[in-house]
Simulated scan of single mutants.
Amino acid sequence: MIVSVLAQADPGVPSGSEFGKASPVGLFVTVALLVAVIYIGYALTRRMRRLNRRRAFAEAHGLDVFDEQAVDEAMREAGLADVDKKRWF
């Protein structure tokens, strides 16, 4: 008895002309995520600069760093525009 086995592809493995090609939706998702990460980095950098500026002002004027109302009032009296801006985050 001789047994012959034909080489066949596994039926669960995708094949054909469309296999391995990325869709435009994948590119869009990747670009959207990249834009989101860049925006979050920009926003956090802005926020950290603002917090460092407020901390330095509070320490220079002998204020409690965690007393937001006192720091806001002192910065407003000093003429710094930071205080009047809307806080987005």
Rank of each mutant, 00 (worst) to 15 (best):
A81N: 09
V83D: 00
A81L: 12
Y42P: 02
L63Q: 05
D72R: 05
E59S: 03
M48H: 11
E77L: 15
Y39A: 15
A81W: 02
L63N: 05
G62W: 08
L33D: 10
R49M: 11
L80P: 01
L63K: 04
D82K: 01
L33I: 10
G62K: 09
A58Q: 04
Y42E: 10
G79C: 06
D84R: 13
V37M: 13
D64F: 02
A36W: 12
G79W: 00
D67N: 15
I40M: 15
V71Y: 00
Y42V: 10
R47I: 11
K85D: 11
A32T: 12
N52M: 08
E59V: 03
A58L: 04
R47L: 14
M75W: 01
L63R: 05
A58S: 08
D72Q: 04
R53A: 15
A70R: 07
V35F: 15
D84L: 13
A74R: 03
G41W: 04
V37K: 02
D84F: 10
G79L: 02
Y42L: 14
A70F: 00
R54V: 06
A60G: 12
V35L: 15
I40Y: 10
L44E: 11
A56M: 06
R54E: 06
A81S: 14
Q69M: 08
R55A: 06
R46A: 13
Q69G: 11
R54S: 03
T45W: 11
D67Y: 01
A78E: 11
V71I: 07
R55P: 00
I40S: 12
R47Q: 13
Y42C: 08
R50N: 04
A36M: 14
V35K: 07
A60C: 07
I40F: 08
A36S: 14
K85L: 13
G62S: 10
R49K: 14
I40E: 13
D64N: 13
L34W: 06
L33K: 12
R54M: 12
D64H: 03
A32Q: 13
V83I: 12
R54C: 00
N52H: 10
Y42R: 10
F57S: 00
R50A: 05
V35M: 13
R55S: 03
N52F: 03
L63P: 04
A74L: 05
G41R: 06
N52P: 00
L34I: 12
R76Q: 12
G62C: 08
L44R: 11
A56P: 01
L51F: 06
L51I: 06
R55Y: 00
R50Y: 03
Y39I: 09
H61Q: 15
T45H: 09
R76K: 14
A60E: 14
E77D: 15
D67R: 01
E77Q: 15
V37L: 15
A60D: 12
